[in-house]
Design a protein around this nucleic acid. Structure first.
Lengths: 140, 140
DNA sequence: CGGTATCCGTACTGATACTG
DNA sequence: CAGTATCAGTACGGATACCG
């Protein structure tokens, strides 16, 4: 859909993403929500380091509940970003890993997450600056 | 915090982001949530095309309510990603634009959003494949 | 025009308990 | 170990009404 026809002709700006995501009903909204969800981001990033077991992820992604972890993993699996591999042994053993598709998103998500980590200082500084409530007026 | 000390020594993997975001209480979680919030993403992307007025954004980001738009803009302003410029005229005129900091995140957010738009087809295809519920077993 | 204030439903979230 | 089921709290999100 995105690469076939755009409803808005998109004014030829190269960085513009005017077409798709602005439509409230577009499926890409859903995918975006899954990927950028609270735990989705963290899970994708964690999986860039390789295959993980369920409990391994649970420990690694601090603060996530079993329920949310399972639920988010299901969503990511449904979107084709994550594979779930069941080893039929006792005790149970399940591995989660990124698909090729998943690695591509995870890379971008990781970029974003990494940027935030690296620039947290700048953001915190900006926060205090704004906290002083400098009511910027337009330069007359 | 992110660039000062890491609690986990981080095994020298270059793509690993093991340090910061995994801590439940780290401020970067908050920033990440703002940026990746439902409307945060869309607003940041919209602003990469330049300065926008309130109502302009409202029209552009399909489906957003006034409340959510205002609220999200406040959050992004507080984090130092967006400037709010009030022109003291009648009728009121307020401009929103990205700060340099904002342009850096917006670029990454845009990358992610763009990837999803461009690869929506692959994701939808993957969805149907998974919908067939191929219960992958580990290759014995 | 560009908001804020208020109300209110629901969807997300997290403990807890239980199953294979 | 790896989940699912159930339940209760919260906070998110939208509609409406009103102010500067």
């Amino acid at each position: 859909m995105a690469h076939t026809a755009r409803k808005t002709p998109a004014p030829a700006r190269r960085l513009a993403l005017t077409g798709d995501l602005n439509a409230p009903a577009c499926p890409s909204r859903g995918v975006l929500d899954h990927v950028t969800s609270r735990w989705g981001v963290l899970i994708l990033v964690a999986l860039t380091e390789g295959t993980h077991r369920f409990s391994q992820l649970r420990r690694k992604v601090g603060g996530v509940s079993e329920k949310m972890l399972a639920q988010t993993l299901q969503l990511l699996e449904a979107d084709g970003f994550v594979t779930r591999t069941v080893h039929p042994v006792i005790p149970p053993h399940v591995d989660y890993a990124l698909t090729p598709l998943g690695e591509e998103v995870a890379q971008r998500v990781g970029d974003l997450a990494g940027w935030i980590e690296d620039n947290l200082g700048r953001v915190m500084a900006a926060r205090e600056r704004v906290a002083l409530r400098a009511p910027r007026r337009a330069p007359s």
